[in-house]
């Protein structure tokens, strides 16, 4: 079975995000970029499936700017076998919308015929949480979202989902789209031998036109603003004072 893992290049989770002066988005120029952490978990899971003998090839795909090649190299250094880069923009500030990404991914799936697509549940930059679901709809494949456990067994897979108030386990028919949650696994570090091998692994470059997809944005960003600053706290002298204050504030 081949596993396809879409990975997105996003602003590094350690970077303090700054809103651009004109409110059109966040500043991405000269900022450290990394692989979306949920996608990293997806790559890890795909490699584990391969190590367990349940997958025989892991293909990473990224859609975005040319620099996303670095993100793909990271996936290759972790252990993916080859990569596909779809250069869909020259501007680091242009986010390719989930529907366009899903359509391109459908094209990749048609070509590659994977048995499983493992996606991060969402990208940490815009938190859309949409691509996996849209891809599933476009392909007519079953989907298991927010996976915290995944057990692939022949024609079906058991997916444990993190839902409000607990866990739900479903069985999905393969081929399937599974979007992964934080607790599925802990991604490995790229080992030194794999870092050295990554450059030699194949990385194909494509364009949206190769898949007949138009990536022109359909959404308009009206404004982007910083979250409201947290109000200063207050240190109280005793439990009584705390209770009195909470009563005053109507909290108890």
């Amino acid at each position: 079975m081949k596993v396809l893992v879409p990975v997105k290049r996003v602003i590094d989770y350690n970077v303090k995000v700054r809103v651009k002066a004109d409110g059109s988005g966040v500043d991405l120029a000269n900022v450290k970029m990394s692989m979306n952490p949920f996608d990293e978990i997806a790559v890890e899971q795909a490699i584990r499936l391969k190590e367990a003998g349940k997958a025989d090839e892991v293909v990473a795909v990224s859609i975005g700017v040319k620099q996303a090649q670095e993100t793909l190299r990271t996936a290759l250094a972790m252990g993916a076998d080859r990569a596909i880069l779809v250069v869909a923009s020259e501007d680091v500030h242009q986010d390719i919308e989930p529907l366009a990404v899903a359509k391109i991914l459908k094209g990749v799936v048609d070509e590659e015929q994977p048995g499983l697509v493992l996606c991060g549940k969402q990208a940490i930059d815009n938190d859309m949480n949409a691509t996996g679901q849209m891809l599933s709809a476009l392909l007519g494949w079953s989907q298991g979202t927010f996976a915290s456990e995944l057990d692939v067994d022949g024609d079906s897979a058991k997916v444990t989902r993190e839902v409000d108030g607990g866990l739900q386990t479903i069985s999905v028919k393969m081929p399937a789209i599974v979007t992964v949650d934080l607790r599925l696994n802990e991604p490995r570090y790229a080992s030194l031998p794999n870092i050295m091998k990554a450059k030699k692994k194949p990385l194909d470059e494509k364009t949206p036109a190769d898949y007949g997809v138009d990536v022109t944005p359909r959404l308009t960003i009206v404004s982007t603003s910083e979250p409201e600053a947290r109000k200063a706290g207050e240190i109280v002298g005793s439990v009584d004072e705390l209770v009195a204050k909470l009563k005053e504030a109507g909290a108890v």
Binding site: R73, T74, A77, I195
Partner: peptide, 10 residues
């Protein structure tokens, strides 16, 4: 190089 960047990051 990309390898060196990955060595640093790892």
């Amino acid at each position: 190089s990309e390898e060196q960047e990955m060595i640093v990051s790892t």
